[in-house]
Design a protein around this nucleic acid. Structure first.
Length: 824
DNA sequence: ATTTTACAAATTTTT
DNA sequence: TTTGTAAAAT
């Protein structure tokens, strides 16, 4: 604490409200942080401040977030304040990743092997499906998804299978849903998970909570280690998380939670907004701080959002304000159908780019459901506006990748019967359903895992499996076992390569070299190379750490061969990707493809900000969406309203909202009304008053039984069905560029000469990953593992590219190939 | 055992 | 509209 103490430097950048929250390091603290108010800054400053003013070991500061991204961002920021070394020691990460790490240490106390693997949602759904089938329950009543969500709800509320079936209220609900045997499925499901040595997502929380009860000694070890605990996005915590945090503060009461009740949008997944409402009484006496100064958005946006959220009854009163300029009013775009909606939004973006010199990356287009992305994506593409969709199926969701991953899982955890089932006949080995069913029966009666059963040479005598089948099973089993035997002595990268080649998946795909199969083979290879990357990264981290440690003892840099790297197991890799969300993996893929319009759902926009935000599909039924048969609950509506609040507050400079009067839903036409939320924004923040005629009272222009000459009655009856070049009546407000919108953007893609056509971004583009629009036949590109090659074919529709490399011609998905311009 | 074909169903958000 | 599952054919 010298004259220019580091703590002074930390506090200097904070406003009075923020500073107060940072200074209160002891005891329970609730920080109500409005959107754009510098919540992350408070959290990071607080951690830095604690490190600067106390002798706390960074490892005993626990910071929990919901996304990996948020955790990394915080770590990054703290690193600049207290140094990389110390920041790296913090116990910081998502609930799931931090807890999974702890559980691995104490797994034996819960009857799990420390090598337990983690099922993602689709893995667990597959298991549920099988159980439903086994029990001969028609999946008409027992929809796997519905059952899964019931089970998940139970787990989030720490209701065990036994408690579930003994709970009359729960059973009543199931009966009324016509699925009275859900509890039975839950029991079987949990039993199977346990036998397989597997946890699903929710189990990570359940078992963490269980650990506190099962072993007070272990819990003391864990909880007493964390002197300071911080929780981000507290409004999104569920009951299990609440309980765990409670238990973690048993010894040190220094808990700081940060959140905004107005941004609670995950109730559907168990988040309990009451957690933040009740914090004061739960942790009394506690200190409450409000940070309400919005540094992100204009006055118009902040006040418009305020006027909207005031329609919610249950909320913590707060007055968010902006000292920024008034800003542009909110424009509402009305369109005939989704195609026109997309075109109008596209034109508005083009106009802004021209008049405000905005970059593509200044724009975000938000929507309620993923299915809405199609129309706008296509429209942008037609106008040559580069864009990325952040969501959708991630790399790790592709079947071939999941197949390979199930090999990985089986090798890491040979008791995972689900992994066995998935990999045993992939590629086709002639081991079909009947054989596996017989094997399953044998395994059950012998009380062993499928893999163990498959290894037995006396299979024909203990089951109905014929000799031929037994032979195939034996050889599969011995392949897996040979891999298992070297699992702990070989690093993940070598093991992955070995598994990949022994499985024969890549070879099988290449035997029948269709475009699709080739890309599948490439994806499997890509997965293997991502394991290689992972190991390299871990080694690099380790090396860095060793170096920084040896700095003090003034030893010269170690020759790299002398470094004894720790073993990086395949299980480490599996854990890493199991807890990776799809949006995050997507982000990593296009890490540096920056100057693009971003398309995403409102949910995935949380925590982000953009100068210009478009929110599409502002229609009753879509946003707010009502799913359950017509009637909408007050709570659901309030959550939808918060969701819209989140969407609005992403914008820095301007927001535009769009809706259409005709929309194709599930393939059939509908005529929705504009969203009620549009009326809830105080009209003084709108560019122009809402057209009155669109709402109820009279018939909303039902053109019902007029099959007319038009085969598709919901399409605009007027001349051209909104082709790319028919911009349709441009609305007054948007600085319209009229008919020639197309030529605005130079065709940066399809470069006839060199691909870096525009001078502006050329310099930084040497290492940039190329998108499908950056490619053209004949150009040379570079791939991480295949080296330099020449593009020989390009399929814009399927987004695939064929490249002739020194090792031969490869056909790859552009999104996953990570091609770059060759370095000269 | 695998491929093809036909038909039905279901469409939110995700750590 | 697409997606997945069930039955039927190879």
């Amino acid at each position: 604490m010298a004259d220019h103490s580091p703590s002074e430097a930390i506090l200097r950048n904070l406003d009075p409200q923020q500073k107060a929250a940072v200074l209160q390091t002891e005891g329970p603290v609730l920080v109500i942080a409005g959107a754009g108010s510098g919540k992350t800054r408070v959290l990071t400053s607080r951690i830095a401040y604690i490190l600067a003013t106390t002798d706390t070991d960074p490892a005993s500061i626990l910071a929990l977030t919901f996304t990996k991204k948020a955790a990394n961002e915080m770590k990054e920021r703290i690193a600049t304040m207290v140094g990389r070394k110390r920041a790296a020691r913090l116990t910081m990460g998502t609930f799931h990743s931090v807890f999974a790490r702890i559980l691995r240490q104490y797994a034996h106390l819960l009857g799990y092997p420390s090598t337990f693997t983690i099922y993602d949602t689709s893995d667990s759904q597959n298991l549920i499906k099988r159980i439903i089938k086994e029990k001969n329950l028609g999946d008409k009543e027992y929809k796997p998804k519905a059952v899964q969500s019931r089970i998940s709800d139970a787990k989030n509320n720490l209701i065990s299978p036994q408690a579930y079936v003994n709970n009359p209220a729960v059973m009543d609900t199931d009966r009324s849903k016509k699925m009275p045997r859900t509890g039975e499925i839950y029991l079987a499901y949990q039993k199977a998970l346990r036998e397989n040595g597997v946890m699903d997502f929710d189990d990570i929380l359940v078992n963490m909570a269980l650990l506190a009860r099962v072993s007070p000694d272990a819990w003391r070890e864990i909880a007493s280690r964390f002197r300071y605990i911080m929780v981000d996005e507290y409004q999104d915590t569920n009951y299990a998380q609440y309980k765990i945090v409670r238990a973690l503060t048993l010894f040190h009461k220094n808990l700081c939670v940060v959140g905004d009740d107005s941004q609670s949008i995950y109730a559907f997944r168990g988040a309990n907004i009451q957690n933040i409402f009740n914090f004061r009484s739960d942790y009394a006496p506690c200190k409450v701080f409000r940070i309400e100064h919005n540094y992100r958005s204009t006055k118009v946006i902040v006040e418009a959002a305020n006027s909207l959220i005031e329609h919610n009854e249950g909320r913590i009163p707060k007055e968010c304000f902006s000292t920024g300029e008034g800003g542009e009013k909110i424009n509402i775009i009305k369109a005939f159908n989704e195609m026109e909606e997309a075109v109008l939004v596209t034109q508005s973006i083009q106009a802004r780019i021209r008049t405000s010199f905005a970059a593509y990356s200044d724009f975000a287009i938000l929507y309620r459901t993923n299915s809405q992305s199609r129309a706008i994506e296509e429209s942008l593409r037609r106008s040559n506006i580069p864009n990325v969709i952040l969501s959708g199926t991630s790399f790790y969701d592709r079947t071939e990748v999941k197949d390979m991953l199930s090999y990985f899982r089986l090798v890491v955890n040979p008791s995972d019967n689900e992994a066995f089932r998935r990999s045993v006949n992939r590629p086709a080995r002639g081991i079909g359903d009947t054989t596996v069913a017989a094997l399953d029966e044998a395994a059950r009666s012998l009380g062993v895992t499928l893999l163990e059963a498959a290894s037995r040479e006396d299979l024909p005598s203990v089951s109905s499996i014929k000799n031929a089948g037994a032979l195939k099973l034996n050889s599969f089993a011995s392949m897996i076992r040979s891999l298992v035997s070297i699992r702990d002595t070989v690093d993940a990268d070598d093991l992955a390569r070995l598994i990949s080649s022994k499985s024969g998946m890549v070879v099988a795909y290449k035997m029948e070299p269709t475009m699709e199969n080739l890309s599948r083979a490439a994806n499997v290879e890509e997965l293997v190379s991502s394991v290689v990357d992972f190991v390299a990264k871990r080694h690099a981290e380790y090396f860095e750490q060793m170096q920084s440690q040896s700095d003090s003892s003034s030893s010269s840099t170690l020759p790299s061969e002398a470094v004894q790297y720790p073993h990086v197991g395949l299980s480490d890799f599996l854990e890493d990707i199991a807890l990776l969300s799809s949006a995050e993996s997507k982000e990593e893929e296009n890490a540096d493809s920056d100057n693009k319009v971003k398309l995403m759902t409102v949910h995935s926009a949380k925590g982000l900000e953009f100068p210009y935000v478009y929110i599409m599909g502002m229609e009753d039924g879509l946003f707010p969406s009502y799913l359950p048969g017509g009637g909408i609950q007050q709570n659901d509506l309030e959550e939808e309203r918060r969701l819209f609040y989140v969407a609005l507050t992403r914008a820095e400079k301007a927001v535009e909202l769009s809706y259409c009067t005709h929309r194709l839903r599930n393939g059939n036409p509908e005529t929705p009304s504009p969203s009620r939320f549009l009326r809830e924004i105080s009209p003084r923040f709108l560019v122009s008053p809402l057209p009155r005629d669109d709402w109820g009272s009279d018939s909303p222009s039902r053109r019902s039984p007029s099959p007319s000459p038009f085969s598709k009655p919901w399409q605009r009856p007027s001349s051209s069905p909104s082709g790319p070049s028919s911009p349709s009546p441009v609305r007054p407000s948007a600085p319209a560029c009229a008919s020639t919108g197309k030529k605005l953007v130079p065709k940066a893609s399809l470069p006839s000469s060199s691909s870096s056509s525009s001078s502006s971004s050329a310099s930084s583009s040497s290492g940039r990953i190329l998108g499908v629009y950056d490619l053209s036949v004949g150009m040379s590109v570079e791939h991480k593992s295949f080296g330099r090659g020449v593009v020989t074919a390009l399929d814009m529709g399927k987004q695939m590219v064929s490249v002739k490399f020194p090792v031969g011609e490869k056909t790859l998905m552009v999104a996953f190939a990570k091609l770059r311009l060759p370095q000269d």
